[in-house]
Amino acid sequence: MGELTASNMFESETICADHKDLIHDVAYDFYGERMATCSSDQYVKVWDSDGRGGWRLSASWKAHHGSVWKVTWAHPEFGQVIATCSFDRTAAIWEEVGDAASSGSEKGLHTWLKRSNLVDSRTSVTDVKFGPKHLGLLLVTCSADGIIRIYEAPDVMNLAQWTLQHEIPTKVSISCLSWNPSLSRVGNPPMLAVGSDEPNTSNAVANVPSDKGTACNGKVFIYEYSETSRRWTRTECLSSVQEPVNDIAFAPNLGRSFHLLAVATKDVRIIKLEPLA
């Protein structure tokens, strides 16, 4: 039998990102047809798939006055919009402008305009993510001083106007966060998972009392929004994760009764979260 086993069937292709410093994040758009990269060189680049496996640089601009940690795409219903966050303590919302005619202009570079600058944080903004589409146009940021901020654009036509809806102090340095993409109409309240990169030194153990009054020294926290109290509260602390967290991501919900959360520390762990009935 042709032992052309499955393992031979992955192909790789290299793109030279041409950032002048370390890359911190790579994010694909909703369709996987565009790719945004950001780097310590303070630049953000957008790449478009040519449909034949190649990528073409379509925009590159200096986005911040410090390392750009993360870049993330909004749902395409809101247009071509990305958000970035940086060591310069800000997060920014960018929109691609230009019409069909100018896309064929020289060099073929597109223009991204800064629509809003979110300056509430007093420390480095470590992660930024748009909320699930069904919740409207929401944005969450987290910062090194452990504050999670949730913003909303009340008018999706106006990306310049963002109101700070919630400020949730966590008292530990937060490095990454992820929205639970599950639809809230099937009984899942809006949910966020955040990961802390607080180092495990003996006296700086993340020993934060949760809302239930019990201490927890885990590094991953789950927050849920309660419609009745209109507040985000910490509902879970995953004590199984003790190492500083580098990245965190919810799996898409395939109609399962539970949620899956991937947590990257020194290794990668998949955690199953079962909502209480």
């Binding site: 192909e11 292709e13 290299t14 990102a17 790579v26 990269t37 496996g53």
Partner: peptide, 9 residues
């Protein structure tokens, strides 16, 4: 800085 795009053939 190189980005490796990996896909299943």
């Amino acid at each position: 800085n190189k980005i490796l795009n990996i896909r299943q053939d």
